[in-house]
C-alpha cells in the first residue's frame, strides 16, 4: 500500500490554530487511529503550533509553518517545519505547579504535554529550519517489539 503524506502550509498566526488541529485530527482519523490517540495528536499539534508561533517566530507573523502527516503501519507521524529561530523543545522535568508565581511560564507546560501525549518526539535544526517530528502509535504497539 503506498504511503501517503498529507501536507498543510499555514502562516504563524493563532487564527490558523483551529485549521492545524482539524488537519491533524482528519489525518489521524483517516489512518484509523482510535478517538483517544486521535485526540492526543490534535492536542500535541495545538501545543506544537503555539510553541512555534511564540518561540520560533517570537509572536504572530507571516512566517510559514509546514505540517505533514504520514500514516505508517504502526501509527501516525506528524512533523512541523518552520523557518523561525531555534527553540528548545525540552520539557520541564516536572509540571510547573510548584511555582510560587501566580503566572506560569508560557511554553513549558505545552512542551510537557507534547512529550506526554505523544509516543516519540524529536527536534532538529537543519539550515534555517526547525523540524519537530512526533509519532503516535496505534494501541497495542510497542516499539520494543
Amino acid at each position: 500500500m503506498p504511503v501517503i503524506t498529507q501536507r498543510l502550509r499555514v502562516t504563524a498566526r493563532l487564527t490558523e490554530l483551529a485549521r492545524v488541529r482539524q488537519f491533524v485530527h482528519g489525518c489521524a482519523l483517516r489512518e484509523g487511529l482510535p478517538e483517544r490517540e486521535t485526540f492526543a495528536c490534535e492536542l500535541a499539534a495545538d501545543e506544537a503550533f503555539v510553541n512555534i508561533v511564540v518561540h520560533a517566530y517570537g509572536g504572530e507573523s507571516d512566517g510559514p509553518v509546514f505540517v505533514r502527516c504520514r500514516g505508517v503501519a504502526n501509527g501516525l507521524l506528524i512533523s512541523f517545519v518552520d523557518e523561525g529561530m531555534a527553540w528548545d523543545p525540552t520539557p520541564p522535568s516536572a509540571p510547573p505547579w510548584e511555582s510560587t508565581e501566580t503566572e506560569i511560564t508560557v511554553g513549558g507546560l505545552g512542551r510537557l504535554i507534547i512529550h506526554r501525549a505523544m509516543d516519540g518526539v524529536r527536534f532538529t535544526r537543519r539550515g534555517n529550519r526547525n523540524i519537530l517530528s512526533m509519532c503516535k502509535f496505534r494501541p497495542g504497539f510497542s516499539p520494543a517489539e
Binding site: R21, T102, E103
Partner: peptide, 20 residues
C-alpha cells in the same frame, strides 16, 4: 470541547489567586 495548556494555565493561576 478542547482544553490546551493555555486553559490549564488559566485554571492554575486562578487556583493560586483564590488560595491566596
Amino acid at each position: 470541547d478542547f482544553l490546551s495548556s493555555a486553559g490549564l494555565r488559566v485554571i492554575v493561576s486562578t487556583m493560586k489567586s483564590t488560595r491566596k
